[in-house]
């Protein structure tokens, strides 16, 4: 009986491993053409519109946003990478234009503070949980 239980358990673990392995063996088959509409959208979704300041360039229909979409498309067609497009726009319009604040001297605290608080919380909780009763 006992032996049987064990083998059943083993079987389950085997199934688990097989499932995970089949997944990992999957190749990343995403088609990546040299330039696509999608790439433009990925950029415009992360840019803030200067005319209607709560919206992304992607959502906005303002004159500026429309030109910006064309501009980015032509930049990509000229062989620029996403990062190059972003950095040239940041140079022109300031860090404000991108929704991703990135890591820099100005934003170090922005990223670090929540993580720091998480660690502090973890220490406090660990102290409480693992305290000798």
């Amino acid at each position: 009986m006992r032996m049987f239980m064990k083998s059943k358990k083993l079987l389950k673990i085997k199934i688990l491993i097989i499932l995970i392995l089949t997944f990992l063996s999957f190749k990343n088959t995403a088609v990546s053409s040299s330039f696509s509409e999608e790439q433009t959208v990925n950029i415009t979704k992360n840019l803030r519109c200067l005319i209607c300041q709560g919206q992304t360039i992607h959502e906005s229909n303002s004159d500026f946003a429309e030109s910006m979409k064309k501009y980015i498309k032509s930049e990509l067609e000229n062989g620029k990478t996403n990062d190059e497009v972003f950095s040239s726009l940041i140079e022109k319009y300031g860090q404000w234009i991108v929704y991703d604040p990135g890591i820099s001297r100005n934003t170090l605290l922005l990223w670090a503070l929540p993580l720091l608080l998480f660690l502090i919380g973890g220490v406090i909780i660990a102290k409480k949980i693992f305290r000798k009763i």
Partner: peptide
């Protein structure tokens, strides 16, 4: 015509 030159300058309106 398309507003691209203005973006080159960093203008938006």
């Amino acid at each position: 015509k398309q507003g691209l030159i203005s973006i080159n300058f960093g203008a938006y309106g």
